[in-house]
Design a protein around this nucleic acid. Sequence first.
DNA 1: AATAGATTCAACCGCCTGAGG
DNA 2: TCCTCAGGCGGTTGAATCTAT
Length: 449
Amino acid sequence: MSITVETDDMMTSKVDVDSPDEATGGVNAGGSEPLKKGPWTSAEDAILMDYVMKHGEGNWNAVQKQSGLARCGKSCRLRWANHLRPDLKKGAFTPEEERRIVELHAKMGNKWARMAAELPGRTDNEIKNYWNTRIKRHQRAGLPVYPPDICFLASQNKQNEELSAFSSADAQNPDVSGTNDFDIPAVEFKNLELNRPLYPPPLFEIPSNSLLDITVSSFLAQGHSPPYNSTSFLSTMHPSKRIRGSESMFGSNGGSLLGQPLGFSSYNNHNVTYDDHLPFSSIVIPGSHAPLNGNSSSSEELPSLQNQTANWGPPSSPLPSLESIDTLIHSPPAGHSESGSDLSPRNSGLLDAMLYGSHTMKASTDNSHQEKETFGDAVDNSYADPISPLSHFSASVFSEYAPIDGSSLHEFPSLATMPGCKVKQENVATSSGQACGRDSCTWDAMSTV
DNA sequence: AATAGATTCAACCGCCTGAGG
DNA sequence: TCCTCAGGCGGTTGAATCTAT
């Protein structure tokens, strides 16, 4: 049975009233009645408000006991946090807020609560819903999500994150490469972002401390696939690290909505037009939230990677076709053992090599840390470690990914050349976004930045 | 006006983390 | 060290609403 109730928004909704407390506005005097679910009524809101005013936030389970509200503590907390809090802003996001959300997402990924903390008066749920809606819209339109300046910001932040992760990991695990433990420190995987290799070089400056990124890129560029896939990776991780860690490893998309590389659809699309509903233009995402391997629960609404590749690029593209990359990822590496057991960290020479490489990289980074933000320097000083079994991979990726116009990667503006290595909103027009008009722009225009 | 499909958003679910015993 | 519990987070669901036909 259901009845129509009026909420405090003056909206009506049907409520499941199988629970006997409905007629009393959700008050459960005895506290022993089944807890109610579904939309809150204004009466329930009033009770909750009253309770919080008297007792303050927290101890949510006590709400049900003390006020008789037939709602679980979680539900009360959620209702308070998302709707009743007096400091909540109502209404649509402002363009500034929208911009901030994109920035924050580039920086944090799907950390809705953290993003909400940066946006006073907004809730994580609100932001999450907004983002998901936005992504869906962009996916449908075949557009990327991040504007170009935010792309840079994202890579910059990722870079810093990875550097600090490496540092702390090394402090805790001085001999990373020697581990035989299957409980592999999450930080080692944090840098294995399989999506990175596919970023178009003209827009994405590979940070010098992201050796593992390069390494994976190299596998792809060389026609190898890494000796694992994201699934097997996750499966070898300690469960407690798997879920949260995966967010770092494969992009924090977590979500199905980002289940494909968001920037791809426009990477080789030289005639992209941009969504004029947005407060800024958008372009390829070098961000870190797009798993290559579709490990996430991808939505069937999203175009598949393979489907998209059909329209992506001119045959002359210096990148391996995305289709082939997709194939590579899912196929065993050339020359690699055909035994599935080799996927284990213990038996994976390649993984060991990568860990070794990361270690080498770290040492190298420590030695010449202050410099070399640029791609090419990284090759010269770090990646081409003659001892490292990865060095040739690392170097090769750069030639493999040479810009279309043949210009040196050095010529591509470094993050350091951007004011404060940060993109502020007022600077958007002076960053690469300027080249990209609000209503339309092309990849060609952007690639000249 | 009716209908179907798309979109929005409130709420729930399951899992993780940290505190306390 | 283990267990329990509360709080928090992120993903998902489904009803309400909007829009196009």
